[in-house]
Design a protein around this nucleic acid. Structure first.
Lengths: 232, 232
DNA sequence: CCAAAGCTGTCATGCTGTGACACATGTCGT
DNA sequence: ACGACATGTGTCACAGCATGACAGCTTTGG
């Protein structure tokens, strides 16, 4: 029961009864507050002294709970960061689902991905741009975070696969293609990230880099060495 | 790094020398033996009780050394497994370098990857098929191994990028394309692995699945929903 | 054979993550 | 409001991974 679907702020000033849908009971609210406090404290410390140098105990102390309690909210230290990736992922799935069927699969993937990342950068849909940047920074500096992120992405890939298969009208249990396509989406993220970290891109905006990467994929896959367009 | 300075030893079949090589010094030989013993013991235990259930202490005990010594040979428990991935990777780089320049980049990547995996499966170049299978098995069962593997692959991606850039005749510091291409290769592995684990492929041979994945990439990227070829 | 270099074991330590149990707090029925 | 039940939290204990420091033994090389 740790689904933890937390919508924004929502102050429930009502004593009892009233809106029971969003958050029922004080206990639930308290948990929510604790969770958010932990996330806030964690990111503050991560940014301040780095992910690795921050211990779970410090995070817990900051919120005045025991370390044990921290682990009742998050399965691991990395999990605090992954929480956000999960949110972005879910949003991306929704965006993908609502792309018109007329778009080629890769284009749909591209548009969905880019739109969500833009939203993150611009603070729409409740995303916090500052935190988004902080996460990117941590991915670079901490291999542990990066690794877990890759792992998470791979684990969630099957959901993208399902949507793509549906869109393609094929059975994901018998057709490779949706799997490969989903992998490509994942790959685009990683490549974009790597390109950004390596300073190869002309821009600093992640969304633009992702878009470029998809661009390369779309028309660059047929690239042959003899076609070199004198770009180097 | 000083002292011990063997006169240009290093012959061709260098893969962690067995014993019939010009190994200067007993100390060096002893280290080699310890290392191999650790790897052997580790894999034996991994296969027997699973990666997670096997502790470093058990591995060390098996070889009759202290846990501390284990960590002088491997940076982490996962590192034992990654050692092999590293070997495969290096072999793959060599294979890639020697692909004819007339091949399109993706094709070269495909051929290089497939040939190396075939070698692993068939026990050529000193690879052990059984161990290769064992690793695949662990990747499925242990998220830790899988995660580290992804991380390792991503970290090594830059080397593929360099080779591709060279082949394309472009500057990897200014051109996205080689980066994306390298990412694609990595992606092919992951997708193949996922497809295999999901039981979507008709075959159990990893090399064949990888080949198929590349196939999909090569001609499937232009896939549009309205082009469904009644394959599903 | 001796001295330097290098490897190993032991000890100590820090951090992550989990299980068990007791206590306190919130929830709900009456 | 009161009591019974459920749930969250703290404390304690513990296992495992990983690293630093120091002492002792083996190898190396002159």
């Amino acid at each position: 029961m740790n689904g933890v679907r937390y919508s924004a702020g929502m102050e429930a000033t009502t004593v009892e009864g009233g809106c029971a849908a969003p958050m029922a009971g004080r206990r639930e609210r308290k948990k929510q507050r604790t969770r958010e406090a932990l996330v806030d404290a964690a990111f503050r410390l991560f940014q301040q002294k780095g992910f690795d140098a921050t211990t779970v105990e410090e995070i817990a102390d900051e919120v005045d709970v025991s370390s044990r309690t921290f682990f009742r909210y998050f399965a691991s230290k990395e999990d605090v960061v992954l929480t956000f990736q999960e949110e972005q992922f879910v949003t991306m799935l929704e965006a993908l689902s609502s792309r018109p069927a007329s778009e080629p699969v890769l284009t749909a993937l591209r548009n969905a991905a880019v739109s969500v990342i833009r939203a993150c950068e611009e603070g729409r849909y409740g995303f916090d741009p500052e935190r988004f940047g902080c996460i990117q920074q941590m991915m670079e500096s901490s291999p542990a975070v990066f690794g877990r992120s890759l792992e998470h992405g791979q684990k969630k890939q099957s959901e993208i696969t399902r949507i793509i298969a549906e869109r393609m009208g094929v059975d994901p249990a018998a057709d490779l293609r949706p799997h490969v396509m989903a992998g490509l989406a994942n790959c685009a993220f990683h490549s974009a990230f790597e390109v950004l970290a390596a300073g190869v891109a002309k821009t600093d905006r992640f969304s633009e880099v992702v878009d470029e990467v998809f661009e390369v994929m779309e028309d660059g896959l047929a690239y042959r060495s003899e076609e070199t367009t004198a770009a180097g």
